[in-house]
Amino acid sequence: MGLIETGYLEYAELFSRQTLPTQERYAKGPVAIAECVQEIPCNPCESACACHAICVGEPITRLPRVCYDQCTGCGMCAAKCPGLAIFIVNKAYSAQTATVSFPYEYYPVPKVGDVVRGVNRKGAYQCEAKVVKVLSPASFDHTPLVTIEIPKHLADEVRSIERKCLA
């Protein structure tokens, strides 16, 4: 069953629709992963990238393609994407850990140093994680980008954190 039946992307489906970075590229530092697999007319990621590393082209229903060698992992595309479907993954953060940066628009936004619960695309708990960076400049237009440190083997799985729901 695919994304349109379950609501979440299995890694295999993502792999079949998007070319993902090589191990060599992951080893060099943060990189943008566009988990965008459905053709809808949309292209703000293309103009958001200062390095021109993302291409949508014409027609604008085409899926974005990230040129991983040009990508610096700055996160502008992740903040701009209307679908909140782009994540910055850094598998070179440390020997044991990786970081994942994701757009997070729920109150309360976590702070650097907070310990949070990392979840996968299904919302299922994966691991405890430490918040290492929170970026929310004016250019992100109220889409904070939260970076959490997680065990490296979960870098392809963790994509968000459990919300603290206000009663």
Binding site: L3, I4, E5, T6, G7, Y8, L9, E35, C36, V37, Q38, I40, P82, G83, L84, A85, Y106, Y107, V119, N120, R121, K122, G123, R159, S160, E162, R163, C165, L166
Partner: peptide
Amino acid sequence: GCEVVALVEAAPNIGGYAVHAAKICRAGV
């Protein structure tokens, strides 16, 4: 700040954009 306890859909598929569904699925709905 609300809790969405369920998203109910009669069809076997989600009707809207997959990226919207992905957001709420990873939020645990």
